[in-house]
Design a protein around this nucleic acid. Structure first.
Lengths: 242, 242
DNA sequence: CAATATTTGTTCGTATGTATG
DNA sequence: GCATACATACGAACAAATATT
């Protein structure tokens, strides 16, 4: 039709609305799982046609930020948990800093002999006793990772009891005399979930997992933990700080 | 039938066979990708039943040392390529240092407008032109990663031609005046391969991929590249140096 | 393309030695 | 001694995927 009547708008209205909603979600005004206002309400609030609101919502949906269900509404998608990894990996601190509620469940703790691979990683002799524990990490009640952690019992006497008494690796290691520890190596790859992992993580067999293999060492460089963690691919994003 | 008095055997035959084959592989007698002798040949060579050979091969397969293909044979598994990631990611240098032959194939290069997400990542205005290219990274002729790389053409005039002339990102950026660049953010998660990715990576749809999303910036901190890379989960292990 | 041979995968069955209670 | 369970080892036949002619 005719040319521009209003002032030359550099950004389309729908993008402005999308940006606004994106901000609301980012600031936590609408949280994961919350229902956004109806398209009618939004078109009233922004004083635009409902089509324009739909365009904005469509963009957010493309970004994976929201999901719409016909007849039900538009919902904020479950945001993947950002999980920083680096030289210091502290599960509870990481998630608390992100404003989430961390939780850890120990499923099993056994003391057994180290396999050759485990012995090499921990720099102990094959057959030396290690304390191995399986567990689950949750954020806001949702399982996000399944882990297997091995501690050299010969180097850290009493680590077994310490792990069962306390809730976190950091505290347990502190109890047996390791005041500080840092990550000396991390290896990452992608695998498919087997039946056991799927069960614990409440996902389906064959879903993608991000597997992290790492060694933590004390300040003298002695390995104090060799662990493998399987992160649910759609619930976690590992972030590396440049 | 059984006239023989079997001597007291401490280690099972199948374990001895597994150890023997493991040694052959370790000494390079069978190299990565080579086909082992058929089960029939092995059962003849070791003078045992095929089941016994299969038991040994099964153990090696569990260790990830070999992989069997029905109707085809048993092959020495290709060792996953170690791929260090950190503030400096240089594909060619990384692989050359590991004694492998790196290769890069550009599949497509187009210039188009940036989506909001891309614009945000590159710190440009939505709609600014970017040069987007799809490609494939190979090690020793095997595809290991599929990538999508976006460059801000407004900030780096001529990047499109530079990319098509040269073989690597580093050289192309050098041509348009970016002498050095570092990674300012990296995000990792696991996903399943779709049909396109599976085709290019020569894997199956639904195989696990490790997706890396990252931004590279020049020494002043201006983003010069926004890229996503999908690594074949069973061919690559990302390593982080502590 | 089709027929054939090769090779691994699966499922029966049989037999022996060893550890356990 | 006996019953049971488990790991090991051999034999035969067939199914299914692949390679070759």
């Amino acid at each position: 039709m005719a040319g521009d009547k209003p002032k030359k708008r550099r950004t389309p209205i729908w993008q402005a609305i999308a940006t606004s909603l994106r901000g609301d979600i980012a600031e936590g005004r609408y949280q994961s799982g919350d229902r956004l206002p109806t398209e009618a309400e939004l078109s009233g609030r922004f004083d635009v046609n409902r089509h324009t609101v739909r365009h904005a919502l469509s963009a957010l949906s493309d970004e994976g930020l929201v999901r719409t269900r016909r007849g039900s509404g538009t919902f904020v998608a479950a945001t993947p948990t950002d999980y920083p990894i680096g030289q210091r990996v502290r599960f509870h601190e990481n998630l608390l800093a992100a404003g989430r509620h961390p939780e850890k469940r120990l499923l099993q703790t056994v003391t057994r002999s180290a396999t050759p691979r485990e012995a090499r990683a921990l720099a102990i002799a094959t057959g030396d006793h290690i304390c191995a524990c399986l567990g689950l990490s949750l954020a806001d009640g949702r399982p996000i990772a399944f882990f297997e952690s091995m501690f050299p019992e010969t180097r850290l006497p009493g680590i077994g009891q310490a792990l069962q008494q306390t809730l976190g690796v950091t505290q347990a290691l502190d109890l047996v005399g390791v005041a500080d520890y840092t990550r000396v190596s991390t290896r990452l790859t992608a695998v498919l979930a087997d039946a056991t992992q799927a069960l614990h993580l409440q996902i389906s067999e064959g879903d993608p997992l991000l597997r992290s293999t790492g060694v933590n060492a004390d300040s003298q460089g002695n390995p104090v933990e060799y662990g493998r963690t399987w992160f649910a691919g759609d619930r976690v994003t590992l972030t590396l700080d440049g």
